[in-house]
Amino acid sequence: MDQSVSAPGVASRRKRPSKLQDNLVYGLVWLACFAPLVWLAWKGFNGDLGANPIEKLIRQLGVWGLRLLLVGLAITPAARILKAPRLLRFRRTVGLFAFSYIVLHLFSYVGVDLFFDFGQLWKDILKRPFITLGMGAFVLLIPLAVTSTNGWVVRMGRAAWQRLHWLIYLIVPLGVTHYYLLVKADHRPPVIYAALFVVLMGWRVWDRLARRA
């Protein structure tokens, strides 16, 4: 017999984390997500962003946005494997931080690199494939950020809300391809991110098949 269910009331007697503990964990998640921005600001302040600091800043903001999108996708398998469903609470926070980094990435490119020359931006979108893919990923990410609240889940219905948020499975590979086409020499980081995405999607397929079986 499964020992986890042999003693009635064991689950009910488990002590839930206190409000203070919950707030502490949320604070640590926020600090972890916010830390890369502080690190980039510190390096910029100290002139430690390399020979082309603007390019370095723009790229790193985008890379951290992509990393956090992958972290968000990893939370569900981590919660299942570790049998820690409370981890799922952090998907929204991580996702919104990812969106924030990507907004800063785009704003830095348009504002700092192009000086808000939207005509040039439009030309880049049409002529440079990596920018076309990056803008496509950003546009698809907007409805996910807008509908991230519980109120939108209620208004749309959970099934429709979940279908909309499946766009993340298209957004991440678009982001990875954008990054791959952007870099000119070392393609290892985007290849690693692509491999992580494949692993995470493979786990989802395996998990769904196992549940059906």
Rank of each mutant, 00 (worst) to 15 (best):
G44Q: 07
V29F: 00
L66Q: 04
G47C: 08
G65I: 14
L57D: 08
G62Y: 10
V38P: 01
P36V: 03
G62C: 05
L66T: 15
I58G: 06
V29H: 02
D48I: 12
A41L: 14
K56T: 13
W42A: 05
I58A: 05
F34A: 11
A51F: 15
Q60R: 08
Q60C: 00
D48M: 13
G44I: 10
L49R: 01
G65A: 14
V29I: 06
W39P: 13
P36E: 00
R67E: 12
N52W: 05
F45S: 07
I54K: 10
V29P: 05
G65P: 15
K43L: 11
W39T: 05
W42H: 10
K56A: 09
L57A: 05
V29E: 09
K43R: 09
I58D: 06
K43D: 04
V63W: 15
L66S: 11
C33I: 06
G47R: 11
V38G: 06
K56P: 07
V63F: 15
K56C: 13
W30L: 06
C33R: 11
A35N: 03
K56G: 07
I54S: 01
L57Q: 07
K56D: 10
A41E: 07
R59W: 07
E55P: 01
L57F: 13
A41V: 13
W64G: 04
R59F: 02
I58S: 05
L57C: 10
G47T: 09
F45I: 03
D48H: 10
L66A: 14
L37E: 02
I58Y: 12
A51W: 12
W39D: 14
K43W: 04
V38S: 00
K56R: 15
L57S: 06
P36H: 05
G44E: 10
N46C: 03
Q60A: 08
A32Y: 07
V29K: 02
I58R: 14
A41W: 04
L28P: 05
